[in-house]
């Protein structure tokens, strides 16, 4: 049976996809997610999802976002944000070297971390060429969609 967090993830996955109707049947449970009347329901589901969110991490993410704005104005900093929900890992497996360290240079396609959601690991790439200035989250943190992960000083 899916846990509450996993149900949240399924809802989020479906919400962010182009799927209109989703059914998942397991041994003891059945989940039906339908996006009939897309506009109205989408708004509604976003509201309910926010209510569901793990408050501490979400709040932390927003803080970073708020801090970041003056920084961006001061110097050309790029924020790598999470493309998905999941648990943040700095290395491919426990004990392995982390993908990147603060102070290291990255290319567009450099993998900076992985996010695990429902046993699937998603690689996150830097997206820009530059130097990692700050890591904004910790190994094992649960990350929300759009949450800032790293600050990168863009090479001019």
């Amino acid at each position: 049976m899916l846990t509450f967090d996993e149900i949240k993830e399924v809802i989020r996955m479906v919400e962010q996809s182009s799927i209109q109707h989703f059914e998942l049947e397991q041994e003891t449970s059945k989940i039906v997610i339908s996006k009939a009347g897309v506009h109205r329901v989408q708004t509604d589901s976003r509201v309910s999802l926010e209510a569901l969110q793990a408050v501490p991490t979400a709040a932390k993410g927003e803080q970073h976002l708020a801090e970041e704005i003056p920084d961006v104005q001061a110097e050309p900093l790029h924020t790598i944000v999470s493309p998905t929900v999941g648990t943040f890992y700095m290395a491919s497996e426990p004990g392995a070297d982390s993908f990147v360290k603060v102070g290291e240079e990255v290319e567009c396609h450099t993998i900076v971390c992985v996010l695990e959601a429902m046993k699937l690991f998603n690689e996150v790439v830097a997206g820009v060429k530059g130097t990692i200035v700050e890591r904004l989250v910790n190994d094992g943190d649960f990350i929300e969609y759009g949450q800032p992960l790293f600050l990168v000083k863009i090479e001019s």
Partner: peptide
């Protein structure tokens, strides 16, 4: 079972 669900949605092009 969890892996099956997530992988199947990825293979079908349902991205998160």
């Amino acid at each position: 079972q969890r892996i099956t669900i997530t992988v199947q949605s990825q293979l079908a092009g349902i991205t998160t």
